[in-house]
């Protein structure tokens, strides 16, 4: 309980990062930790990169994770995993959604999307997990639950009981989507 857990969720505006981040931080609160979370709203959200920092433990001061100290990087998009990789610590885990979203410089032809992201990450970091969250969400019954499927994968690396996750998901998602989200969470949990 004394050890501080540092998490960064990264991706592209519109991927459901803020909901995922809320569920992690609320679950950590329910599990009895002190929690801080920081993210950027406004201009940064118009299709730009989005980062959410979450820290929990016995007592948290800074809401920002330091470079080289992130225990878990949860990347909703491959390129964003590369962008944030320097935050990861030596024993840290990177969970990457195997999805490519071209930024405008790439789609308009002025930049090239790196091809070998999985290879690069696996070469430099010991624990890299690639997940096809879109497939898991489809299996669960709704492609929009990809963010919750990724939480399922992430939950294995975090010291928070499963029933706490379930309780917070039930509270946070729309009533009619509870079942499909819980299914997506468990598919993520069982995926690796």
């Amino acid at each position: 309980m004394d050890k501080i857990t540092n998490i960064i969720i990264t991706g592209v505006g519109g991927q459901g990062i803020l909901l995922a981040s809320e569920i992690i931080s609320e679950s950590a609160v329910l599990a009895g930790y002190d929690v801080k979370r920081s993210e950027i709203h406004g201009m940064a959200q118009r299709g730009g990169s989005v980062n959410s920092h979450i820290r929990f433990g016995k007592k948290i001061y800074s809401p920002l994770v330091m470079k080289g100290e992130c225990d878990l990087l949860l990347a909703f998009e491959k390129l964003e995993a590369i962008r944030m990789a320097d935050f990861i610590n030596k024993e840290g885990t990177i969970i990457v959604n195997d999805q490519q979203i071209n930024p405008v410089p790439v789609s308009s032809g002025s930049a090239v999307y790196p091809e070998n992201i999985e290879e690069i990450l696996k070469k430099y970091f010991p624990s890299v997990i690639f997940v096809n969250a879109f497939e898991l969400a489809k299996q669960a019954g709704n492609v929009r639950t990809a963010n919750i499927a990724l939480l399922g994968v992430a939950s294995k690396k975090l010291n928070i009981p499963i029933d706490v996750w379930e309780k917070v998901i039930v509270e946070r998602v729309p009533q009619r989507a509870i079942e499909v989200n819980l299914k997506a969470f468990h598919l993520g949990l069982q995926s690796t």
Partner: peptide
């Protein structure tokens, strides 16, 4: 940021783990 304080007070160096590579920016649009 805590990183800036660590550099200033603890002489901490933040080395890049990944080699230099061209990462396309993702500006808002």
């Amino acid at each position: 940021s805590p990183d800036i304080l660590a550099e200033f007070f603890l002489n901490k160096k933040f080395d890049n783990i990944l080699p230099e590579m061209q990462i396309p920016s993702r500006p808002p649009a």
